[in-house]
Design a protein around this nucleic acid. Sequence first.
DNA 1: ATAGTAAATCGCAATATCACGATGATATGA
DNA 2: TCATATCATCGTGATATTGCGATTTACTAT
Lengths: 113, 113
Amino acid sequence: MGKSKTLLFTTAQNDLADLAKALAHPARIAIIQYLANSQSCINVTLVTELGLAQATISQHLRELKELGLVRGSIEGASVNYCLDLTRWREVQQHFQSFFEQISESNTNGLCCN
Amino acid sequence: MGKSKTLLFTTAQNDLADLAKALAHPARIAIIQYLANSQSCINVTLVTELGLAQATISQHLRELKELGLVRGSIEGASVNYCLDLTRWREVQQHFQSFFEQISESNTNGLCCN
DNA sequence: ATAGTAAATCGCAATATCACGATGATATGA
DNA sequence: TCATATCATCGTGATATTGCGATTTACTAT
């Protein structure tokens, strides 16, 4: 990407951007939704569910794990993945305060009609 | 990227991913916040505010405009940008229902301890 | 007209992302 | 032990993103 100039921005801005990046791919959205809906924490049934290669799913899971959104625990030969709900509440909070900042915007139709 | 396989996913999943992508860069977060906080709709004062080149800002603004998050109206030689608050309420709704889906998750600590 | 300012666009270089086959590590069951 | 199954990681090709200088377009003021 030609080096995103993270130094120009605040930590909060970079953090939110990183979280958004994690959600910036339909496969990751789908993985998260699948984990949210499945009773048991699911491993790579995701491969057959989503129609992507095992290596690809694994890579997406790693990104989600790196941000703490998903955890995995070894269960014999396989790995059980699940959402870290505590972390997700945090994340939701981040987004929420961002959105609030916008809705409290004083751009009251004063411009751009 | 090697062609993201959008066809495998639902429209809702792709849409949310696209919105997230728009927020997946600190410069765009900063632009949005600046627009939210400024009284008048601001043009590329953003260049001096953010410390990025004019071409770069213009490109980020275009991405935001393409998703309808930001509008610009020509004002003589310059352009006034502002947030489309109606659109933003929509966007917030998208994210909110995604987060609700997660918090209603039945992953009640049954796994991954 | 001419010069100056504001912004969009083009084209490039650097880097990041996505998808996947292949390989390797580990664990299970015969 | 040996075959099989589940994952993670590496390496690679294809594509996308960032950032910017240079150019172009449009308007303003002199």
